[in-house]
Amino acid sequence: MSLALERDRAAGPGRHERPAWMEKPHPLTQVGKAVTIAVTIALVVIPFWVVTATSLAPDQQVIDNGGWALWPDSFTFEAYEKILSGGVVTRALLVSLGVTVFGTLASLVCTVFLAYALARPGVVGGKPVMLMVLFTFLFPPGIIPSFLVVQSLGLRNTYWALVLPVLVNAFNLVVVRGFFQGIPEELYEAARLDGASELRTLFTIVLPLSKAVIAVVGLFYAVGYWNDFFRAVLYLDDASMWPLQTVMRGYVNQGTSLTDTASTEGTVISAPQTLRMAVVVLGTLPILCVYPFVQRYFAKGVLTGAVKS
């Protein structure tokens, strides 16, 4: 260590100077950054807290405050108990969970297999298929062509219409393909010398090294399936088949009344604002719970795939 310090001293006085692009920012710049970060956090946290507090507040407090509550007088889960009592929201939540889980798994399988095939050199038809993928990425199909294709395939009023049209995303495919291309070619050659097939190479070598990109792309697919509401409106005529986001859109934005289907009289639930906010929290919470576990993979998964592609 001392020898290294002596060599640095002998190199001259400018040896330890920071480059111009790494200079310490001015104190006013640091303050400005801190203020910007604080304001951004406040703009994100405060609205979410108001929504959550309103959903947990008593009905009378929400009514007296004009439909909002900054801090509940007493925390109550009555709104959540009502919307999860076996009615419209419960059914929509199960639909969203099923479509999200099945769709994400199916999309990951198809994306990984197609990306691996396109990443390997010498694949027959690899370049034309890649050009078609890029063409769909640059020129996505419109609503009317997509609707006509789904209708001609007999997928309307089925849950397949929520999965198959978006089974493979071109951007995610390009990212995964770029990541696979970044894996050293020596590993593929070693697997071939050991007699491993392409399928075994994929499962024993490529996938264990690609956990980051698979986690990121899986989150992209899951968020897309979970937040999608338009396809249900377009392809599903039966409202009982709608996912949570479609039900939430109709209830929160359009003021559609939810009825307590657990009640034999089908009476309208009181204090609808608490119900609206509870549905919003229910539609947002699953992604918020999953995201922190995948966040650490974002830089490695997305940047590596994007740079290599």
Rank of each mutant, 00 (worst) to 15 (best):
A79S: 15
A20M: 08
S74L: 10
A20D: 12
A117C: 06
I63D: 11
D59I: 02
H26Y: 04
T29Y: 03
V123C: 01
S85F: 11
L134C: 07
Y80L: 08
A10E: 15
G14F: 05
L108S: 11
V101D: 08
G98K: 13
S152D: 14
A119G: 13
F147Y: 14
G32T: 03
V50H: 02
T104S: 08
F48Q: 01
A79V: 12
G86N: 15
F139H: 10
L153C: 04
P145L: 01
G66E: 00
L97N: 11
T52L: 13
L138R: 10
A38V: 15
F139R: 10
G12Q: 07
I37Q: 14
P19C: 07
I46C: 09
L84P: 09
M22Q: 12
Y80N: 09
L108M: 15
V45C: 02
L118T: 03
P121R: 06
V44K: 04
V123R: 12
D64N: 10
F75L: 15
A92Q: 02
P72V: 08
R18T: 12
L56D: 00
V149L: 14
V112T: 11
G87N: 05
W21E: 13
L97V: 15
I41G: 04
S74C: 04
V109R: 04
T76F: 05
G66H: 00
H16D: 11
T76S: 14
P47E: 07
S107L: 08
F137C: 11
Q30T: 05
W68I: 08
L118I: 06
T100D: 01
K33T: 02
V133D: 00
V101F: 15
G122E: 07
W68E: 01
V129H: 00
V44L: 14
L105G: 08
I83D: 12
F48Y: 05
L43Q: 10
S107F: 09
L118A: 03
L131Y: 09
K33P: 00
T54Y: 00
V149R: 07
T104D: 08
G154F: 10
V112S: 03
I143D: 08
L84T: 14
V35F: 10
L153Y: 05
V150L: 03
S85D: 14
V44T: 14
L56I: 02
I144N: 05
K33V: 07
G67I: 00
E81D: 11
G98F: 11
G126F: 09
V101T: 14
F147W: 06
T136F: 10
G154T: 12
E23D: 14
L56W: 01
V133E: 00
R156S: 09
A10D: 15
T40P: 01
P58A: 01
L93S: 12
L108F: 14
N65P: 09
A92W: 00
L153K: 02
P141F: 08
P13W: 06
K33A: 05
A106S: 13
F137S: 15
